[in-house]
């Protein structure tokens, strides 16, 4: 993982200066989606780049070892081999960035990937995902267990109650403890932006999560009513930029929830490129949390190569 964010003291005066003008953010978010279209070869390259940034995810009540296992193999072979060969990209080691599962499925995923002889990290959600409404003690324990089971990355959710009631110190302290519990594992902090009430709160929560030492900040669990939208992403990446300028730490960004199409993926890439620059356009600093996105990207690649639109059954399912 990257140099890693060591975190800082909680700076409440910084929080107090945060201003987010929602109408202006919406305008900008709209522009980003139309002004940086990529076409042809470039589009294919960008889509493959997106694939390498995907945290291929399954977070369902009915997850079993078999579908988790299948997901892991798909993570290793995200794009049909013959398509990659046609583009001369078969030797670039293109896999997804990680596989993301519930804590109880970590062991299954680790086993499957080992069997596939593949070093893709397993990411586990934790801390009372998705609501975070459990005791701190059990939330911390959950992290430790997932790490013990072999998860290299932990996606923690924050306690939204603390944001909505303005208890930034307590929030900071909780995330700090999450960080310690993660040990060597990489920590992504899910803000649950759809439940934070305002873009200003999104910005402030982003700052607190970064001050507390998160390696990534992540928009949502995918279980809130509003998930990864471009305006939210814009606000969060600005917070990341500010934090970098102020501290020198590069924190990663992971939009998750509701990202389903190849076009969505391109929008997120161009948002990152515009706001954070090329440096952030790699799996160490950018992830896309998604489950069905990969299928759409694969279909676009199919079209790029063959000039025909694929049926879903033309491509191996995840």
């Amino acid at each position: 993982m990257a140099a890693g964010n060591q975190g800082t003291e909680l700076d409440l005066s910084w929080l107090a200066r945060v201003r987010v003008n929602q109408p202006a953010v919406l305008r900008r978010a709209e522009q980003i989606q139309t002004r940086r279209a990529v076409k042809k070869n470039w589009q294919a390259a960008w889509l493959l780049r997106a694939v390498t940034c995907i945290d291929l995810t399954t977070l369902s009540g009915d997850d079993t070892p078999s579908n988790v296992c299948r997901l892991c193999y798909k993570a290793k072979h995200p794009i049909r081999e013959d398509l990659l060969q046609a583009m001369n990209m078969h030797d670039k080691g293109i896999t997804t960035a990680a596989v993301c599962v519930y804590p109880a499925r970590v062991a299954d995923a680790v086993k499957a990937l080992r069997a596939a002889n593949c070093d893709i990290p397993v990411a586990s959600v934790a801390t009372g995902f998705p609501a975070g409404q459990t005791a701190l003690k059990t939330r911390l324990e959950e992290i430790r267990i997932a790490v013990e089971d072999g998860a290299k990355e932990i996606d923690v959710v924050i306690n939204r109650t603390l944001v909505l009631t303005g208890q930034w110190e307590v929030l900071f302290e909780e995330i700090r403890q999450f960080r310690q519990a993660c040990g060597e594992a990489h920590m992504k902090t899910i803000l649950g932006t759809g439940e934070l009430g305002s873009l200003t709160n999104v910005y402030k929560a982003s700052l607190v999560a970064m001050m507390a030492g998160s390696d990534f900040i992540k928009t949502s669990t995918g279980k809130e009513a509003v998930n990864a939208t471009v305006p939210v992403g814009l606000v969060m990446v600005r917070a990341i930029r500010d934090f970098f300028w102020r501290t020198g730490y590069k924190v990663g960004f992971k939009p998750a929830g509701g990202i389903r199409t190849a076009k969505d993926a391109l929008v997120w890439l161009s948002l990152i490129k515009e706001e954070l620059g090329d440096e952030w356009l790699k799996p160490e600093l950018f992830r896309l949390g998604a489950s069905s996105l990969l299928a759409d990207i694969e279909r676009q690649i199919y079209h790029h190569v063959t000039g025909r639109y694929a049926a879903y059954h033309d491509l191996p399912m995840a």
Binding site: R36, V38, K39, K40, N41, W42, Q43, A44, A45, W46, L48, R49, A86, M87, N88, M89, K92, S270, K273, G277, D278, E279, L281, K282, H304, V305, T306, G307
Partner: peptide, 28 residues
Amino acid sequence: EEETNGPRLIKEEAWNLCKGLEGDPPND
């Protein structure tokens, strides 16, 4: 034209640019 060109190979620089060493998005 498309037909005769056959499958489109991704040029090395496209992939690299995307990797973001320097430069610009696509304008081919």
